[in-house]
Design a binder for these strands. Structure first.
Lengths: 332, 332
DNA sequence: AAGCTTGCGACATATTTTGTCGGATGAGAA
DNA sequence: TTCTCATCCGACAAAATATGTCGCAAGCTT
């Protein structure tokens, strides 16, 4: 006879969360794989015994009975989260909630729930205090997330993860009708509130495309493996398709004068490690850094309005000259 | 005699992760609280038995022996993560890593490690594929995080969580020397790469301040409870101190013409639910929305350069007129 | 209706669990 | 040093439990 505790713990780890199920026989096999040669009867008894105290569910509508962990229950976790860990997770929650795709967020939610349960137990008063006392503020304006059809997200993820082809109803931008397409998912890119499926289409088996997942209206996963272009590289794709806003990987030396109050934070949170800052006699900050040529950087510069004067490179300074002209025309 | 399995599971949940420890006597008390009246001897025996198979550590340099879970081990988790859950966590990892304070990130890391372990086991080939095939792209430029002194972050968090006063060495912006201060932590605000401690100072017991935590050089937690101004409200503080960049909560009706390609995404990811978009005959998009007057919104508008023409409110249009003038002067 | 699977009660037995006791050990105080 | 105290740990016996086996019943399939 082996150690019943360890065997039962192992068994509990083998039981999936509802709505999935497992069966006595399955458990017997898996336990046997892990070195516990045990009678099926014993497993039945263990399950019934544990069910009395743990949030286990037994679906006895059919035989064999299907066993699972209650969907909402927190199950077992050892070592338990310590309060600091729990605090950190509850902070992570604040970061993730506005950013992450909703379907995914729901799935990590269970961890946050668990964290909050720990906090509640360790210091029920403090947890509310904490909620009142911590804020994660957005750095930039946040857009509404596009609406997604229930379940679509999950299916696209699964297809991308398992590398399976799909058939999907996809609505192009501006169009009101969706069309059936045969798609080979290659990857996923999340950017701000929009997530894209990177994929190959049957029509053009050479060039991958990206499709915002909120334009999918129906997805069926097929049994066939995805056909990939050889040497497909997601980073490369992202760059060449302007998804990451990078024009090139060439570095240039950036130089500009910033208003002190508008850019003082650059001293402590530099653009990158090549950045140098020097206060000028007129109070402005001369900032120098090696930068890659990205649209995001330009947008960031533009957001300073007249609180920045770009000095170098020439090309960028000219762009700003041009911008000045255009704005003058626009608001004349 | 009770059920040994359940009792042992409960006990395992009571054992902290290293470097924290617990002791036989402590476990006896806590188990007794949970309804397991058990001899101390039995606990010792259980611990030794479980140590053989689980990553438990026993520090036997002193008596009583200190028991803990191995720092790196994954312990027990039931129900086990299913692959989709694991996938989602590994995605959350990509979101959080660049955003979250480093000290915190290390603490949630254990969950990500666990997730990756699950993925490795369930489909070792697919996990690598997934890593190659999913990217979370930054929406805006990201600054380097300021350097923090080891342990400072943890202590400030703990003080803020437990509502305890601290003594700290704090270096003001621009100064090279830090000064000792007596501080009453009230809360925390995370914004982009900078995190702030919101607190009261002994010198001015009326007005809370915010202090970037990377300017703290040493922190000692005191035993005394924080004194708070009555009716302290973090959200209010954040607003009145321009941390959230909100000038006022008054809504105005915003109206502007956007270049189509630059702003097409607004159709699918609107600013808020009041937004209306209409395509003009010249191809531009007329966007209308009720907005609050925030600096962030203005910055976002400015980042469009000449791809936006602000129409209303007048005040905002005038700001842009002014901007056009200033830019013209600057780049003349 | 036969055959199969699965759940479950019963039962005897081997095994484990557990409280108790007493000795060993080591730290700190007198 | 010696004494005291807390703790660990081995031993032991009784009580409780765990386990394999068997047989029956229920429900499904063929």
């Amino acid at each position: 006879m082996g150690n019943p505790t360890l065997r039962q713990i192992t068994m509990l780890e083998l039981i999936p969360r509802a709505p999935q199920k497992t069966y006595a026989k399955e458990l017997k096999d898996k336990l046997s794989n892990r070195g516990y040669e045990i009678d099926e009867r014993t497993i039945q008894r263990d399950l019934v015994a544990l069910e009395r105290t743990l949030p286990l569910r037994c679906d006895d509508r059919d035989k064999p009975y299907g066993w699972s962990w209650a969907e909402k229950g927190i199950g077992i976790q050892a070592p338990a989260m310590d309060p600091i860990e729990a605090l950190t997770l509850s902070l992570a929650e604040q970061y993730l909630e506005p950013l992450m795709p909703t379907a995914n967020y729901k799935r990590v939610r269970i961890f946050f729930d668990r964290a909050n349960a720990v906090l509640k137990e360790s210091s029920p008063k403090l947890i509310n205090r904490w909620r009142d006392r911590v804020r994660v503020l957005p750095e930039m304006i946040r857009f509404k997330k596009p609406k997604l059809i229930e379940g679509i997200e999950d299916q696209l993820y699964r297809a991308a993860f398992e590398g399976l082809q799909i058939k999907a109803l996809y609505r192009k931008r501006g169009e009101t009708q969706s069309a059936l397409r045969h798609i080979h998912p290659l990857g996923l890119v999340m950017k701000g509130s929009i997530n894209y499926l990177i994929c190959m289409m049957d029509e053009d088996a050479e060039h991958p495309r990206y499709m915002p997942i909120h334009r999918f209206e129906q997805v069926t996963i097929l049994d066939e493996k995805v056909k990939e272009p050889k040497n497909f590289n997601l980073d490369e794709f992202v760059h060449t398709n302007n998804l990451s806003f990078e024009f090139s990987k060439d570095l240039y030396t950036f130089k500009a004068l910033f208003d002190y109050t508008a850019a003082a934070h650059l001293v402590e949170t530099p653009l990158n490690s090549t950045q140098a800052v020097k206060r000028q006699t007129d109070g402005r900050l001369l900032v120098t850094a090696r930068m890659t040529d990205t649209l995001q950087f330009e947008q960031w510069l533009k957001s300073f309005g007249s609180d920045v004067e770009v000095l170098a490179p020439k090309k960028l300074r000219n762009k700003f000259k041009q911008l000045a002209k255009e704005l003058s025309n626009q608001y004349k």
